[in-house]
Amino acid sequence: MILGFGAAEWAALALSLKVSIVATLASLPLAIWVAWILARRDFRGKSMLSAAVHLPLVLPPVVTGYLLLLTFGRRGMVGGFLEETLGIVLAFRWTGAALAAAIMGFPLMVRAIRLAIEAVDPKLEDAAGTLGANRFAQFRLVTLPLIVPGILAGSVLGFAKAMGEFGATITFVANIPGQTQTLPSAIYAFLQVPGGETAAFRLVGLSLVVALGAVIISEILARRVARKIAGS
């Protein structure tokens, strides 16, 4: 026992970090792609896509969790298919927690990255085009380096959301210690038993440290990038 933490508490922290990091990193490429589409392309159904992306932000998390269970549960349409063909089970597993966290954090990531892309002058992409770079190269070599601060900000938001995600997670994957019990679920569980306040309090402190740490790190990185672009 270090700092008075028990094994269950360490397990909750480790699981939360694993779930949040996987959720953030796995959804990042999709978030960048969707953000780029929303920022740069005009097409029919764009507002539909935007609404769909933002849905988890406005739906009650429990509803999102239940919808996930209906879709990705073992008897759900996608869930059943995944289990049969790839042997992947999401419901009541840590991977399910990661999926729930990713979906809940997705709108926040897309929003931050979209704003960053919109701040990049499309004329720079045009200039890259006249130099012979195709659309993908324009994005990779011009837009992407310039939106790194936005990507970092979006990732931190997504990560923080994942660390704190509770409603959808507990509905979709329940609260199984060592398997699906993330920090918020553990705090909730400790608060349900008499005398659990101290343990809950320690976890609250831990959450605070992790969240603050993530914000500070991203701030430092974003500043470094901004300084590089400013040229000093």
């Binding site: 002058d121 004329k123 720079l124 045009d126 200039a127 890259a128 085009g129 006249t130 130099l131 012979g132 770079a133 195709n134 190269a137 070599l141 011009v142 380096p145 310039l146 590089k228 672009i229 040229g231």
Partner: peptide
């Protein structure tokens, strides 16, 4: 033809150097 396939150089009024 897409701009990148035209092989036509363009010097813009505002330079448009890549800031990074």
């Amino acid at each position: 033809l897409a701009p990148h396939k035209r092989r036509i150089g363009y010097v813009f009024q505002d330079g448009r150097l890549f800031p990074h």
